[in-house]
Design a protein around this nucleic acid. Sequence first.
DNA 1: GTTTATAATTTGTGCGTACATATCTTGTAA
DNA 2: TTACAAGATATGTACGCACAAATTATAAAC
Lengths: 364, 364
Amino acid sequence: MSEQPKYLQVADILRKEIAEGVFRDGQTLMTEEELRMRFNVSRQTIRQAIALLEDDGLVDRRRGSGTYVRHGPRRRMQGTLHVGVVTTYITDYIFPNIVSGIESVLSENGVVMNLSATYNNSRTERSILERMLDGQVDGVIVEGVRTAQETENEDLYRRLAERNIPVLFMNSYYPGMPNVPHVVMDDYGGGRIAAREVLSRGYRKPGGMFKVDDLQGKERLRGFLDEMRSAGILIPDERLLLFGTDERMNWQNTREGKAFVERLKKHEADCVTCYNDVFASSLMGILQQDGMKLPDEMGFIGFDNAIYAELSNPKLTTLGHPKEAFGALVGEKLLRMINGERERSVNMAWTLIERDSLPRVDNL
Amino acid sequence: MSEQPKYLQVADILRKEIAEGVFRDGQTLMTEEELRMRFNVSRQTIRQAIALLEDDGLVDRRRGSGTYVRHGPRRRMQGTLHVGVVTTYITDYIFPNIVSGIESVLSENGVVMNLSATYNNSRTERSILERMLDGQVDGVIVEGVRTAQETENEDLYRRLAERNIPVLFMNSYYPGMPNVPHVVMDDYGGGRIAAREVLSRGYRKPGGMFKVDDLQGKERLRGFLDEMRSAGILIPDERLLLFGTDERMNWQNTREGKAFVERLKKHEADCVTCYNDVFASSLMGILQQDGMKLPDEMGFIGFDNAIYAELSNPKLTTLGHPKEAFGALVGEKLLRMINGERERSVNMAWTLIERDSLPRVDNL
DNA sequence: GTTTATAATTTGTGCGTACATATCTTGTAA
DNA sequence: TTACAAGATATGTACGCACAAATTATAAAC
């Protein structure tokens, strides 16, 4: 009684042993009677502990037969497999395309998809993952939330791992969890491609704006700066705008945002590499409203090749995200993981899509 | 011991009494001791029964205080509300728009949406609803599956009702469950509008193709035929093609489908009212491929005003589904239901959207 | 060797008791 | 009236026992 109730202690020990694979060979867990003697508690206490494991879907009890550890693919007898998909947004931007790619693979395989959005909020992510743990999903695809920081939800991911529920990160992952595979774009490489493109087209005062509270933005920025540096160009802070998710919707109203725009109007930079196409078209619109002629006076390059890229004026030169193909790969990978295969992480390559926003310029 | 274990019997009785609102006034359920005397069983048995109710989220136990019946809005202490949304499809057709409308309302209110698709399969619907029952959702929005037939899943809807989890049907509902409110389009009225439109533009040999295994199609067809009849026109079977979800993807390869197309090519009808825009544009394409000049040789009218309506050639005249506004209304209604209000069913009106596929014709 | 009856094993149900711990109520003192 | 302490009340934990019901292993019979 010292600290925790006995049945919880017993449950924790068994949980750990199951995770470690102690019971892998023999299909059966020890008998209640054996456990009773081992832990020197009453049988009711043992039963209380095992009930917890059963709730978690870790073991199956069969009257007259024994208690069996569920391991490997947890296919319920006649039930359909369920996969939870947790993205930051659902109906915006390129997410419908990615989700569509995932869904087509899952539905072709008779797997039900269960889709939720975190809105890049860690507590929402927590709430969603808790529900997934309650609801017995067979696999989870997650787009990490503010992955530049440590996640508060590592305990939930650990519980998923304890239950042998495969987890696959997409777009963005938590570096603190190296054992969980991910499928992401090669953001560092993308940053380098963007930088190289900017330079090769003759720009000499490159600037950039990046969201840096997720890995994508951090890596894109890092690649961008690295490539610039290796070309002998050091970008001063005045030509960079860094911001987080919370400033996303109204970065242009922040002090830093306004100052940045003012500096651009004075032509302190001759082009801007943008975190993604939303910000690129938003920034272009602001500058145009203030009378700047684009793309003549300033060049722009974005990421993702979203609809904005086609609709904006000038049309955006951008790095193309495979979207549907990306989602399909993610779905296929998770299905293989559910079937017990070990999967490696993937960094997909970007494709440059040349449009009108980054024309070649002549510098004396 | 006769039939069922005692603890199950006790649980069932309590479940029923809770559903009937016996404990509504006093916030607290009877104490374990009182229940023990009432049912004349041991306290352990009572606890076993109450544990089941707790798993279902029907009651809350507080050590030192008592056992409380959860009724009305089940807001978990600090947790976020979760709403399950079950549609037939997610990424196709007008569903992204409807879902987007729902999502915007829910996310504005800090409610997490949990989206799944049935693919119009009753067993998939069952599997999804079971997961929702496990995972403690606070409300459910469902698009009924093949609502022209009885549903096999009425038991699950009953369990949702027992737990005071509000359910709202959208687009299509089960007539056998009159107590569950729904938000649908006025499909019967839409059928009449389409018929009136066809007649007023001078068509004299109207035909139609309808999916009739869901309420929408049945009602659209009924309204269409009623309006025709009241105008003195009886449509022979040869000018109608009726089919179900399973024939959806390749109706044109079925015997009936082929025969129907052949009759159209012989101009046995001068216009076709179609279940929705997918079928309208699909049918137009087939006829055009066979050399028919549209819309001169045959008129078409669809339902829903999906993208197809804009993209097809000729552009489709169709009845406009409000999509986002529809979804928003659905979301708002469910939120009110979660807050304990009683909501009435809604039939939303269609708006005729005139494009090019149903031109006025001159008949001698 | 196969079948069938029997016994042993294992989990499920049910009762009773005791004490722990959190909460609520009541009474007393300031 | 407020604050605090003691007691009453309710659920939580833990033990023990007995028997039921399903499964599995064993032994006997053909």
